[in-house]
Each structure stands twice: as structure tokens, then as C-alpha cells.
Design a protein around this nucleic acid. Structure first.
Lengths: 173, 173
DNA sequence: GCATATCATTTGAAAAGCTAACCATTAGCA
DNA sequence: TGCTAATGGTTAGCTTTTCAAATGATATGC
């Protein structure tokens, strides 16, 4: 088992992904319409189909209140709409609006221009390696989201359950 | 030609990296000591050597005021220290403290545990592909940072130069 | 020596994130 | 049936991150 190797790549991931993300975030902010990480992830999900608030919160790994607020902001901007479920009146469906699609497309075009320029330096082979690796990473992280309700919280859950509710108490100085 | 391919990979990057980052962010928040993206990038830079505030802002692609605030927060926690340059009194050097190193190590250990677990599913070959791809992406994005003073700011040159006579080309130190 | 440039901080505001407490609705069950 | 618990969202209150604009403090240039 290449456990050591695993940790080496994990370290690399930890050191590199945040840097890439910071560059992307900065670029998203200077775009035609500023858009944040969570927003872009939410909008991307909604391109395909409407979702409930809970599902969006899970997919983006934030709490329900946070997602509720985020959606309120997007709603105010007219990028998404809320709609109560007729059967189960507790449920709220979130749908992307035509304007929302337009904005997303703009942001996407802008970002693709920028990122593509950076990838200009890669050879054909390297491009393929990057492409493949992204898919693998995506699969790995998506699995984590699917498995866990929130934040990959319970890692060593070998049968040991009942750790619910109480998370590590974090107190700030 | 490979330009199209470039844009395809760029799209993939845009769709996948933010998702990965959201999972990592969520995980960083539940760690022993909560730490943000910018903070972890800054601390990583400072592990190697002290830097000026401007340089940190550039490296992490945030504005100077933002970095000033971030550093203030880290300083209050005792993770970094500020020191005026003796020669040029405008300059402030930021250095990581022993406590800062300790905290960073803790956060890193915590994150590596989590990420490594996700990478369990990858085969040896896949691990190597991911590792290589991360290096390539890192190089590409690092080059972008090095080239531009802030946020890859000059997006579309709208042709309007504004200054008769002299260009606003990069006159970087 | 004074204007300008550079490096950093302060101010004020928006957005994103959390927990805790709450409301509305549905489901369970006695 | 009617009470209790569970579920899905929202509200309230707080902290952190981020920006732009204005300000302060040095250094540099002519």
C-alpha cells in the first residue's frame, strides 16, 4: 500500500490547490460581474436542474443557514428563484433564471479566456495529463461529498457511530 | 488546434477546482484551529522566508489593505510578527513565529489526513498522473502571479490607452 | 526643497461563514 | 384523532474576508 505516496500527493494538493484557487478568485472578481467560489459552484449545479436548498448546501459543503443567505443574495440579483414545493410545503426549490444563465456564461467565458492562456505553455501530452488528473481529483472529492452530509466530518467511522451533534468545539482567542 | 483543447481543459479546471476547494475549505474550518485559504497560503510562503506585505499581497492575489488586515489577524493570534525595515522605513517585513509554525504544522497534518483518505481510491498510476499534473498547474499559475502585479488585472485591452505618449506596460522592479 | 511615487494602514461597507434559536410543515404513533 | 418528534428553511447575532477610497509616513527625483 502506497500510504506514504498518498500523503505526499495530499501535501502537494494542499500546497497547490489553494494557490490556484486564489488566482482564480482574483480573476473572477475582476470579471464583468464579480462572482464568488460558492456562487459559481451553486450556479454550475443549477445549470443542469433545480435543487433544494439542503441539497445545494450539501453539494457545496456549507451549512443550511449559509446557503439560505447565499441564495437570498443571488435571488436579489435575479440570478435564481425560490419556489415552495406544492406537495411538501417545507421544501424550497431553487432554479436558475435566464439572467442567471447569462451571467454564468459571461463569467465562464471570461474565466476560460484567462485559464486557457495560462495553459498555453503546456504541451499536448501535459494537457492530457492535466485533464485526466482533474477528472480523477473530481471523482475523489465528489465521492467524499456524496458520502458525507457535511464537511467529511466523520473520518474514522469504522462502525463507531453516535458521534453526532458534537463537533470539535472551536473557541477563538 | 490545441487551442480548442486548451479551452476544454480550462473549462474543466473552472468546474472542478472550485469544488475541490470548497471541500478543502470546509475541512479546514473543522480542524483543530480554523484557518482560511488566504491564511494557509500566506503561512506556507512564510515558512521559507520572511516577506514584505506587498509581496504577500501579490503572491496571494489580494489587495494590500486585505493583506494588511489578514496579517493583523494573524499577528493578534501570535502566528506572525511585523517588523519595520531599518533602511526603508516604509517597508514592513512579516515573519512567521514558532507558534505560527506549530499551528501550520497542525493544520497541515490535519488536512493531509483528510486528503490522503480521499486519494485512497487512486491507483499507483493515477497517483503519479495527479502528482505530475499538480506540478504543471502550479507552474502555470505561478507564472501568472509572477508576471502580473495584481490579479492578472489587464483583461481585455479595450484599445483605450488614455495616456498620450507613454504606455502603461509593466514597469516592474 | 518640494512634488511625486511607494508602502502600508485606516475606514466603511458588502458578502460569506458559523451557531443557536425559531417557524412551518410533515410523519409517527398511541 | 391529537400530541410529539423530525425535517426543511429562515432569522438573529457574530466573526472573518474582501474591496475601494482616503490617509499617513517615507523615499526618490528633478
Amino acid at each position: 500500500m502506497s500510504h506514504l505516496e498518498n500523503r505526499t500527493i495530499a501535501l502537494k494538493t494542499l500546497e497547490i490547490i489553494p494557490v490556484i484557487m486564489r488566482v482564480m478568485s482574483a480573476q473572477m472578481r475582476v470579471g464583468v460581474t464579480p462572482i464568488s467560489t460558492t456562487q459559481i459552484v451553486v450556479m454550475r449545479i443549477l445549470l443542469d436542474k433545480r435543487e433544494t436548498l439542503s441539497e445545494l448546501a450539501k453539494q457545496t459543503q456549507v451549512t443550511l443557514p449559509t446557503m439560505s443567505n447565499t441564495i437570498s443574495t443571488l435571488e436579489e440579483r435575479g440570478w435564481v428563484s425560490r419556489e415552495r414545493d406544492a406537495q411538501d410545503r417545507r421544501v424550497v426549490w431553487i432554479e436558475i433564471t435566464p439572467l442567471g444563465r447569462e451571467i454564468y456564461q459571461q463569467a465562464q467565458d471570461h474565466m476560460i479566456d484567462q485559464i486557457a492562456a495560462l495553459l498555453e505553455t503546456l504541451s499536448r501530452d501535459e494537457q492530457e495529463q492535466v485533464s485526466g488528473a482533474l477528472s480523477m481529483l473530481n471523482a475523489a472529492f465528489a465521492a467524499a461529498i456524496a458520502q458525507n452530509p457535511h464537511a467529511l466530518s466523520h473520518r474514522f467511522d469504522d462502525g463507531h457511530q453516535g458521534d453526532d451533534g458534537h463537533r470539535t468545539d472551536n473557541q477563538q482567542p
